[in-house]
């Protein structure tokens, strides 16, 4: 697992993918920071982080698209699958590499907090809770998108499928307000990644939120392993 993690992390920074992900994220979030915080003379970092979390939806597919689809496209998965490594190890290694890049990027956004701290006041505990929610949400999207990469035959289709899946989760929120059947509405609210994130943005450490996100991640990683394994059984060439 560690071997795969290391290899993926290297390849993020040998190829443009890692830089594109971090660069685009920082570019867009800087603009958001300028508009929402600096121009408004506001010190409200949690709501800024809430807005920034919409970027996960856009950028996680870029981070995960290659991970499994490219191995399949280039035939390198034959090396991995005939080596003494378990499927779980492969999937987890790849996932953790994506999460590592995601963490590096999140650490860089700490600069915004420093800026606010210099010119105003920040509330460390509140900020920490917001960040916890932010990171968990990113990890959840990464797991969902990794699963899409495991389903797709090429990185491009993986990215498109991942965008689709991410938008579906986003649209759930919009739907929730429109459907007036209580059971369905409740189910949607239960599933929504964004609704789960709201308490964090208000500075509440929501255990339900943490557990939901962790279960979400575990479920999609397990599905990915299942998906790869079932493909071995009915592979056609």
């Amino acid at each position: 697992m560690k071997t795969i993690w290391k290899k993926e992390l290297q390849s993020y920074f040998y190829t443009p993918v890692g830089y594109v992900f971090i660069g685009v994220f920082l570019l867009i979030s800087s603009v958001m920071f300028f508009v929402a915080v600096l121009q408004q003379h506001s010190g409200d970092l949690p709501s800024f982080i809430g807005e920034m979390s919409y970027l996960w939806m856009l950028l996680c597919p870029v981070l995960t698209m290659r991970l499994l689809a490219e191995e399949r496209q280039k035939g390198t998965e034959q090396l991995l699958l005939t080596s003494p490594v378990s499927l779980g190890g492969i999937v987890l290694g790849k996932y953790l590499a994506a999460v590592t890049v995601l963490m590096i990027m999140t650490a860089m956004t700490g600069l915004y907090a420093v800026t606010v701290a210099i010119y105003g006041t920040i509330f460390p505990a509140e900020l920490l809770v917001s960040y916890t929610g932010f990171i968990l949400q990113g990890c959840a999207f990464a797991a969902l998108d990794l699963f899409m990469s495991g389903c797709a035959a090429t990185p491009v289709t993986a990215a498109v499928m991942a965008f689709g899946a991410n938008f579906l989760f986003w649209i759930l929120d919009l739907l929730a307000g429109q459907i007036h059947v209580e059971a369905i509405e409740k189910a949607i609210v239960f599933l929504s990644l964004y609704r789960r994130n709201e308490p964090f943005l208000m500075g509440q450490l929501s255990f339900a939120g943490i557990i939901y996100d962790l279960c979400f991640i575990a479920a999609f990683l397990a599905l990915t392993v299942y998906r790869l394994n079932s493909r071995r059984y009915r592979k056609a060439r």
């Binding site: 290899k7 390849s11 280039k74 035939g75 390198t76 998965e77 034959q78 090396l79 005939t82």
Partner: peptide
């Protein structure tokens, strides 16, 4: 194992 298409990065 060397598959038909060498598994190279």
């Amino acid at each position: 194992y060397l598959p038909e298409r060498p598994p190279l990065y």
